[in-house]
Design a protein around this nucleic acid. Structure first.
Lengths: 120, 120
DNA sequence: ACCTATTTGTCCGTATGTATG
DNA sequence: CCATACATACGGACAAATAGG
């Protein structure tokens, strides 16, 4: 799994790392159930502090794509959900959001993981 | 707003602080739109590090309960309930979708109601 | 327009705790 | 018991956004 970070970028290091791991997964460089390098280890290879890697990992965990366990390490979450169920959940979310008065753009922003800046 | 923490508890300090703020809001000790004490300030009064308070605040922000802005501070949002529920639903949807292997663009399409409109 | 203080955001380093194997 | 690896907490440093003089 090769990830590169740019210290001069305005994008936070932990976001770059998280994006790199996501990319490695979607591109198949890392498979489901695979173990990711220990935070300390990946940090060393990127010349980045362990905590920064842990923050990236924590974000991915919150997104549900990896699992973190003490003493055991980090693994890519095992397997899928059903597309029909996803569509159903999506319709519900949109309905709720519309009731709450959100615009289409705001609803999209709700699930947009591409712009990694905190919503403000 | 009075919060107390127990350093000997197994519950993490930042969880205790987050719980205390939630309680203060639901009990009406803090109103919508009110400003919460600066992390440094609350930390000093609780004898806890600023970063620990910031972690608690960050959790509440992820739940949609508060807003944080540099230079300005932390404020309780207008409609915590609605926003929190929506954010939570969205988070789950994104997590499920990612487990199903959907890309960010595919996830957005799930909730995009702007049919043929151009997305910039 | 400028400067300063405030306050959150990120990153680093260290230390200690806790679950796993 | 021991090594591994994440979890929490502290502290310091600097950056970036905001507000006020």
């Amino acid at each position: 799994m090769l990830i590169r970070v740019d210290g001069s970028s305005t994008v936070p290091l932990y976001e770059q790392i998280a994006a790199g791991v996501r990319r490695a997964i979607t591109e198949g460089a890392v498979s489901r159930g695979d173990r990711l390098p220990a935070a300390k280890e990946l940090g060393a290879s990127l010349d980045v502090n362990m905590h920064t890697v842990l923050k990236a990992y924590g974000q991915l965990r919150d997104e549900g794509i990896i699992e973190m366990r003490r003493g055991r390490g980090v693994t890519v979450v095992d397997q899928p959900a059903d597309h029909a169920l996803l569509a159903e959940s999506a319709r519900k979310l949109v309905a709720d959001a519309r009731r709450a008065g959100l615009t289409a753009e705001e609803i999209i922003r709700l699930v947009d993981v591409r712009d990694q800046k905190r919503r403000e």
